[in-house]
Amino acid sequence: MAAFFANLGIAIAKFAAFAITGAASLLAEAVHSCADTGNQGLLFLGGHKAKKNPSKEHPFGYGRERFFWSFVVALVLFSLGSLFAIYEGITKLSDPHPIEDPTVAFVVLGLAIVLEGLSLRTARREANAERGGRSWWRFIESAKSPELPVVLLEDFGAIVGLLIALAGVGLSAMTGNSLYDALGSIGIGLLLGVIAIVLATEMKSLLIGESATEQEVAAIDLVITQDLAVRKLIFLRTQHLGPEELLVAAKVEFNSESVGQLIGAINTLEASIRKAVNSTCVIFIEPDVYRPELD
């Protein structure tokens, strides 16, 4: 909620500064902050909808609502942020006008850089708790919780966009040539377009259905193969039903000599799998006989 109101305040300040200076880069950044504000609302909406109880139509729950609304965030960032900034830059190229009172622009942009930097620092701190030894790019690619990658990329894009705007306004003020301000707006639009495409690609992958992490798959595999009642793990499949919900399906050959023993072995194995992973698991274990010719 703090990020929502912070982005809203920054957007209002940027619109006010644009009204005074007429800088295209500032208008692009103001619309960017509006998009970020709306995106925070969409992430809250997704988190709320994901908490709904399972229904007959959605027996595995609504966890993927968070993936869907994060995908919508990417669409908003591209349409409202990127395309508008590029359009505004091209418009100023065809109809140039000087920046008035650039000091106001410098003050607002400087304040926004400080606030966005604090937001990015907070997001980095939260992400580091989950990132482990992964690189930042690998974390964004493999994260199952969509909110942190969205916030990280938005905050990073905000700071880079502000620096581009600062450079565009500064060069225009020094040279008296509004070309640099227009190019700054176009640069911000291209930056937001790249971020939107990265986000859309990652969220699409989550919507289609990603498997558990390599560490979780290895842990589940180890639990099954080391169980004394298991003769052989025939196959194992996993898929995220939501950021913290995991579907586990396994075909297993057991040593059990009776139906009672088989039921007990399956129940024990399910409990062991749940202890091995952090996610809430929906588990289906099918007993079968291993046939090498089917490999």
Rank of each mutant, 00 (worst) to 15 (best):
A2W: 14
L8I: 05
I20K: 08
T21M: 02
G22L: 08
L27N: 04
A28C: 06
S33D: 04
C34M: 12
C34A: 15
A50P: 02
K51F: 12
G61N: 06
G61V: 04
G63E: 06
R64K: 15
R66E: 10
S70G: 06
V76G: 01
L77Q: 02
A85C: 08
A85K: 01
I86S: 09
Y87T: 13
G89P: 02
L93K: 05
P98V: 00
T103A: 15
T103Q: 12
G117Y: 00
L118A: 11
R121W: 12
E130C: 14
R131S: 07
R134N: 11
I140Q: 07
P146H: 02
V151A: 05
G157F: 11
G157S: 12
V160N: 05
S172V: 11
A173R: 03
L179T: 14
I188A: 04
L192Y: 00
G193K: 06
A196M: 08
I197T: 06
M203H: 06
M203Q: 07
G209Q: 07
T213I: 03
E216V: 04
V217W: 11
A219R: 05
D221Q: 12
L233I: 07
F235E: 15
T238F: 03
P243G: 06
E245I: 14
G260H: 00
A265D: 08
A271R: 14
I273D: 01
R274L: 08
A276H: 01
V277M: 07
N278S: 12
C281A: 03
I283R: 06
I283N: 02
Y290W: 05
